[in-house]
């Protein structure tokens, strides 16, 4: 101790103390790392919210109001959650070209990072469905057949047997599901975009949704099999009737014209 007190005024003492303090801080840091990390994340989160807010006020506020409270041109976004933002912005539906009941799918404008920032901001306005993680929407190991049954009970009435889409009232429509990513299908079911009703976790658990996504992956993707030949749009008898008339009867009439036509006469001159 004497030694220590003797050297306490050593010029390097301050340095030693500093190092010691740092070491202790480091140790404490190590011990309480999660808490501290959370703090750091909060910072990142608030940064994202800040960024999202900026993006929001430029791209969204004109319709949805400066605080997301909604205007006559767009609904309130309080409580819609980051899942809704990820769907609407991620599929290019938002920002909309003009307000209305039907938002068509378009090339998306924001990057995934920007979309996440917007999502963070909207989520901060009020609790809502959170953007799903991959293991939530991944169709890996899901039951395709069960998915088909669920799809026919819950979805086919608007989106057609194999997700080709269909008409709703007054010019609105349920879009085609060919090529929609599993994430976006999941989010659509979670949040109920535009006129689509939602199918929340409480009535359609994650597993059901995965089954449906797996079913759509089988019947409504670019790789979907159509054993019988041309799918004719998957639209059923109207398309089949048109094909039958135009190509079937058309070909047969062409053949009949050939059968009945006179053979060319020899020219005498």
């Amino acid at each position: 101790m004497k030694k220590l007190s003797a050297r306490r005024r050593h010029p390097l003492a301050a340095l030693v103390v500093l190092l010691f303090a740092l070491a202790v801080t480091g140790g404490l840091y190590a011990a309480f790392a999660p808490a501290d990390k959370a703090q750091a994340d909060t910072t990142a989160q608030s940064l994202a919210i800040e960024e999202g807010k900026k993006l929001y006020s430029v791209g969204c506020a004109s319709c949805h109001g400066t605080g997301g409270q909604g205007t006559s041109d767009g609904p309130s976004l309080v409580g819609v959650g980051s899942a809704a933002v990820d769907f609407q912005v991620g599929t290019g539906r938002m920002p909309a070209q003009q307000p209305g009941a039907q938002m068509p799918k378009k090339p998306k404008i924001y990057t995934q990072a920007e979309t996440d920032q917007l999502g963070a901001y909207i989520a901060s306005l009020g609790a809502g469905p959170i953007k799903p993680t991959e293991d939530q929407y991944s169709p890996e190991g899901a039951n395709v057949a069960k998915g088909g049954e669920l799809f026919r009970t819950n979805c086919a009435q608007c989106h057609n047997f194999t997700g080709k889409g269909g008409a709703l009232t007054g010019g609105k429509y349920a879009p085609e599901l060919d090529g929609v990513t599993p994430k976006h299908i999941y989010e659509a079911m979670q949040t109920g975009p535009q006129n689509m009703p939602s199918f929340p976790e409480s009535v359609m658990p994650e597993k059901n949704k995965q089954d449906i996504i797996a079913y759509l992956g089988t019947v409504a993707s670019g790789e979907s099999e159509s054993p019988g030949g041309l799918e004719l749009g998957g639209l059923g008898p109207v398309a089949e009737g048109l094909f039958g008339w135009v190509f079937g009867l058309g070909a047969l009439i062409a053949v009949a014209i050939w059968v009945a036509a006179r053979t060319a006469k020899a020219k005498k001159s």
Binding site: Q157, N160, G236, P237, G241, L242, G244
Partner: peptide, 8 residues
């Protein structure tokens, strides 16, 4: 399903 039609 939507698009429920009979044959032509």
């Amino acid at each position: 399903s939507t698009g429920a039609q009979p044959d032509w």
